[in-house]
Simulated assay, not measured.
Amino acid sequence: MTSRTHAHPDLTRPEAGAPFFSTWRVGSPERQAETVEAVARTWERRPWGSADLLGYHLYAGHDGTTLLHHSQWRSEQGYEAFVKTRRQERNDEIDTAVPGIERVRLDRYRRYRSRERAAGDARVPGLVVTVRIDFEPDAADRRADWVDLVLAALDGPDADRGLISAHFHLGTDGTHVLNYAEWESDGAYDEAIGGPESPEFERVRTYPGVKGFTGSRYRHALGLVP
C-alpha cells in the first residue's frame, strides 16, 4: 500500500538510478493545496505504483502557482512500465478533482555528486531551492567540471552554515544541470545570496559554456512511500 511521510527524501540513495523532476502549473495557492490532497488521495487508495519506485515527493512553489514533483526510480525501465499500466488512471482522477492542471515538463537525471549533510546534522530543511543551469550545446561534457568547481567553492572558508545539503544532477538530455539544495530557512538563503560574491563563485557564474541560471523556492508538501 501507499503511506504518507513528512520526511524529506534522501537524494543520495544508491539504488535511485533514475531520479526524475517534473513541474505542474496549477494557478493559485488554493489549487496548490487541492492538488496535493488530490494526489495523496489518489495514491493512498491504490496499491503502491511500482516496486521500482522508491518514493514520490511534492513541493509547493513559493510563487503560489507551481508544484514540483520528485520521484526516485530504480531505473527508467521501471518508470516506463508504470506509465504503460498505471499512470493514466491516476492522472485522470487528479484532473477530475482539480481540472485545468498544466503539466509543464518532465526531466530525467542522473545524480552526479552531492554536498551531503554533515554527520549528526538533524535539521529539517525549511526551504528547498532548485537551480537549473543551462549550458551551450557544445558544452555538455563540461557540466561535471562545473559541478566540481561549485562543490569546491561550497567547501571553502566562506561556506554558508544555513546550507544543509546540495545535490547536483546531470540532465540526461545533455543540456543542463539541476541543483537541489536544502536550506535551514528562507532567511539563511536570503543572507547567502545577498552577501558579496566570492572569487570562487564568480568563476562558477562566469564558467565558459554556461547560458544561464533559473532558481525556484519550494516547501516540502507531501511525501509518499511504499
Rank of each mutant, 00 (worst) to 15 (best):
W73Y: 04
Q32R: 12
E80H: 13
G55R: 01
E30M: 09
L67F: 04
S75H: 08
Y56E: 00
A81F: 03
D10T: 13
H57G: 05
S22T: 15
E34V: 09
V26E: 01
A16T: 01
Q32S: 11
Q32N: 14
F21Q: 04
H70F: 04
S22H: 15
V36K: 03
L53P: 00
L54D: 00
H57P: 04
P14H: 02
A18K: 00
G49W: 00
F82S: 07
E15I: 12
R25C: 08
E76V: 10
A60N: 04
A38C: 09
Q72K: 09
W24L: 13
E80G: 04
T65S: 14
H62C: 12
A33Q: 11
Q77P: 02
H62R: 14
E44F: 08
A33Y: 02
G17W: 04
P9S: 05
H6Q: 15
V39Q: 05
E34K: 14
G27D: 08
W43I: 01
D52C: 06
R31Q: 09
A7S: 12
S75V: 05
W48N: 07
S71T: 13
H8L: 15
Q32P: 09
P47I: 06
W43M: 11
E80Y: 10
H70N: 10
P29F: 05
S50W: 02
G64H: 08
H8Y: 15
S71I: 02
E80A: 13
E80S: 10
A81Y: 03
D10S: 11
A60C: 08
L54N: 00
S28L: 06
V26A: 03
F21S: 06
R74D: 04
D10C: 10
G17L: 08
S28M: 05
A38W: 03
L58V: 09
H8F: 15
G64L: 07
F21C: 08
S22D: 13
Q32F: 08
F21K: 00
P47R: 11
W48G: 04
H62F: 14
G78Q: 03
L58I: 11
R41C: 11
D52Q: 11
Q32D: 10
T66S: 14
A40H: 07
W43S: 01
W73K: 00
A38N: 05
T66V: 09
Y79K: 10
Q77S: 14
E37S: 13
T42P: 00
P47M: 07
V39L: 10
L67T: 02
D52R: 07
D52I: 03
Y56A: 00
Y79C: 13
A7W: 03
H6V: 15
V26G: 01
Y59N: 04
Y56S: 00
S75Y: 05
E80P: 00
L58C: 10
W48F: 11
R45S: 15
R46M: 12
V39M: 10
Y59K: 04
G49D: 02
L58N: 07
G78N: 06
V26Q: 01
H57V: 06
R45N: 11
A81G: 08
D52H: 11
L54T: 01
R25F: 11
